[in-house]
Amino acid sequence: MLPIEMTNNGNLLEVTDLRTYFDTEDGIVKAVDGISFQLKRGETLGIVGESGSGKSVTNLSILRLVPTPPGKIVSGEVIFDGQDLLTLNNEAVRHIRGRRIAMIFQDPMTSLNPFMKVSRQLMEMTRLHLGHTKQQAYEHAVKMLETVGIPDARARADNYPHEFSGGMRQRVMIAMALSCEPELLIADEPTTALDVTIQAQILELIKRLKQATGTSVILITHDLGIVAGMTDHLLVMYAGKIFEQAPTKELFATPGNPYTKGLLRSVPDPTAEQGELYQIPGLPPDVAHLPPGCPFAARCDRVQEICHREFPPFVQLTADHCSLCHFAHEVYEESRAETAGRSSESKL
């Protein structure tokens, strides 16, 4: 893995200092507040955070789908394959949406148009972007439904969304998203609304299709458990900021941020024989009224006086590992020590 600053060229997506604010009755909500990250072709990036941390808004901002008003992209750059999506005209952005960047949303129950046959919803994509005729589009739609594993696809293509189960609907969403072979697939909590067994199937499907097509993927989730085996890089978001950023393996092994540590501890470990499930105390902060210091200070188990007073620095721990914390180095060293201890334990 090359250090971040050397991979800039050849990046499919570069997001720089993205800020998206919402104007609400309670004041300005800084849903996304200065996010920067890069994504290479063929890579998978995971974005993790609790609800309200800004992870979904980040991705809606990339495609300029934030509802305006009340939302507004205040500043930043989203360079996709050399073009800044935020300065492109609407027409040009539409040619990228669906064609080159496709999205899958959280709730398959409400994300498909309930009044339209599934086939038509799929055909719309290829007719719009690939200029398919009705016939071609229909054949393509059936093929895509087969690809995502809808049994008896030809017969079911003319059903309405409500005639499918939740998992099947998410497969339809995936089929639709991938029907123009996009270069980037953004999956926004694709499994949150699904049963546990279905979750695994959907993740497996995304993984398989990604390998087959070489698509880059951004996987948004609040569940660290599901990103472990699927992503190359991870971003941990909290209160509209990136709290930690690292290659997935490294982040799991040696987290450099108390919040990430908390998240990792709250992933249920099926091998643990007993013990209570850990939960980060408190609730995510009210983003409209953030305190001056670290937004996580009130819930942090190693909070110091400085945390309430000063906003923490974004500390570079290794070449591609950064953490937003006054005590990033200390936390990182602790994690290393723990990991070393654990591996020596397992050797014994």
């Binding site: 809606l60 495609l63 789908l65 509802p67 539409r94 040619h95 990228i96 949406r97 669906g98 064609r99 496709a102 999205m103 949303f105 709730d107 409400t110 994300s111 498909l112 148009n113 309930p114 719309e124 994509m125 719009l128 972007h129 969403m173 639709m176």
Partner: peptide, 15 residues
């Protein structure tokens, strides 16, 4: 217009 499926339609690149 606020519903999820309209967001989906927009994400498809429709005008």
């Amino acid at each position: 217009l606020r519903s999820d499926y309209i967001r989906t339609a927009r994400s498809k690149g429709l005008s």
